Simulated assay, not measured.
Amino acid sequence: MLDYQTLNLTRQDLADMYRTMRLIRRFEETAVDYFKQGIVIGNMHMYVGEEAVATGVCKALTREDYIASSHRCDGHLIAKGADINAMMAELMGKENGCCGGRAGKMHQTAPEVGFMSANGIVGASQTLGAGHALYCSLFAPERIAVSFFGDGGGNQGGFHESMNLAAVWKLPVVFVCENNHYAISTRVDTSTALSSFYQRAAGYGIPGVRVNGNDALEVYAAAKEAVDRARRGEGPSLIECDTYRYRGHHEGDEQTYRTREEVEAVRKQNDCIQRMLKVLTEDFGWTEEEDQALIQSVEQQIAGAVEFGLQGAPMKVEDMEKNLFAE
């Protein structure tokens, strides 16, 4: 049982984390609805089920800290404080999107909140995260960097290169493996000799820990320790978050590699939103009235984001090459 006082978490802190997870989920569920209508364009790789990881990690960060993300970036963006209006507009390919409608789902950025990069290259966030941390060590010692990547990314060569160099140079970076057990359709235990990624940290002489990635408080506790360590100049850490995605690798994925029963069992037994709601209710006296008010507030915020996106002007094809080169 986590000690909230030791973590310096208040009732309001937990309510904020709970709201963040609900906001992430409703944003993505809504985006999928508009994707099916052809209004949200491009590919859709969903974060539904993994919300506790982004929420717990980003709770330990400041607005100025840097993030390198992956193709499932919505959760990281929202947890870091990005503008969901601009995010929804971006998914709709609008000029008022966070990248002018050019980035789509997998390549969004929000540098105003330290979100430097999302990308569709598996494992690329590891080297980018180490690069952000190198910048911090040279020019912004008050900041640290976080690299989010999946279990598939853990088997890329960049994993070793980034981890090793970060350890050698004691870079202020936290590597976060979001182990959702499937790299597209490949189960982690069929593709990885050592299926616990956190144990690899020992080979680089850095701390490694595995946590329940569906428990935002457990994620936060591990992230806080790793972030504090990085700020003290003691180098990188590796956190493996054992989590699970409810939807396919992408929208339209037939998911022949797993059963509906498997997905529903995880959703029923270990859903991150329900876990936090239980803590709030049982330990902090969270009421049904408070819950409904929060849910309604989230719905209003999502509705505003949709309206912002729908009202935006479509990106002009003739402007697609803008920002490719410095002027």
Rank of each mutant, 00 (worst) to 15 (best):
Ile24Met: 14
Ile24Trp: 12
Arg25Gln: 14
Arg25Leu: 11
Arg26Gly: 00
Arg26Ile: 00
Arg26Tyr: 04
Glu28Gln: 02
Glu29Ala: 07
Thr30Gly: 09
Ala31Lys: 08
Val32Ser: 01
Asp33Ala: 14
Phe35Gly: 05
Lys36Phe: 01
Gln37Ala: 14
Gln37Cys: 00
Gln37Asp: 10
Gly38Tyr: 07
Gly38Phe: 04
Gly38Ile: 05
Val40Thr: 10
Val40Asn: 10
Ile41Asp: 00
Ile41Gln: 15
Ile41Lys: 15
Ile41Ser: 12
Gly42Ser: 07
Gly42Phe: 06
Gly42Thr: 07
Asn43Lys: 09
His45Arg: 10
His45Gln: 10
His45Cys: 10
His45Lys: 13
Val48Arg: 07
Gly49Arg: 10
Gly49Leu: 04
Glu50Gly: 09
Glu50Thr: 04
Glu50Ile: 00
Glu50Tyr: 03
Glu50Ala: 05
Glu51Asp: 14
Ala52Met: 15
Val53Tyr: 13
Ala54Gln: 13
Ala54Trp: 06
Thr55Tyr: 06
Thr55His: 04
Gly56Leu: 03
Gly56Arg: 10
Gly56Ala: 09
Val57Leu: 12
Val57Glu: 07
Val57Gly: 06
Cys58Pro: 02
Lys59Ile: 01
Lys59Thr: 07
Ala60Val: 00
Ala60Arg: 01
Ala60Cys: 02
Ala60Ile: 00
Thr62Leu: 01
Thr62Met: 03
Arg63Gln: 10
Glu64Ile: 00
Tyr66His: 12
Ile67Leu: 15
Ala68Met: 02
Ser69Arg: 01
Ser69Cys: 08
Ser69Lys: 05
His71Pro: 08
His71Gln: 09
Arg72Ala: 12
Cys73Ala: 15
Cys73Asp: 12
Asp74Gly: 05
Gly75Ile: 08
His76Glu: 09
Ile78Tyr: 09
Ala79Glu: 06
Lys80Cys: 02
Gly81Thr: 04
Gly81His: 05
Gly81Arg: 06
Ala82Gly: 06
Asp83Leu: 08
Asn85Cys: 12
Asn85Glu: 12
Asn85Ser: 09
Ala86Asp: 03
Met87Thr: 06
Met87Val: 11
Leu91Pro: 00
Leu91Gly: 00
Met92Leu: 10
Met92Thr: 04
Gly93Leu: 04
Gly93Met: 07
Gly93His: 07
Lys94Ile: 02
Glu95Trp: 00
Gly97Ile: 01
Cys98His: 03
Cys98Trp: 04
Cys99His: 10
Cys99Tyr: 03
Cys99Gln: 08
Gly100Ser: 14
Gly101Asn: 12
Ala103Val: 04
Gly104Asn: 14
Gly104Tyr: 14
Gly104Val: 12
Lys105Asp: 11
Lys105Leu: 13
Lys105Trp: 15
Lys105Thr: 14
Lys105Ile: 02
Lys105Asn: 15
Lys105His: 15
Met106Phe: 03
Met106Asp: 10
His107Thr: 06
Gln108Arg: 13
Gln108Ala: 11
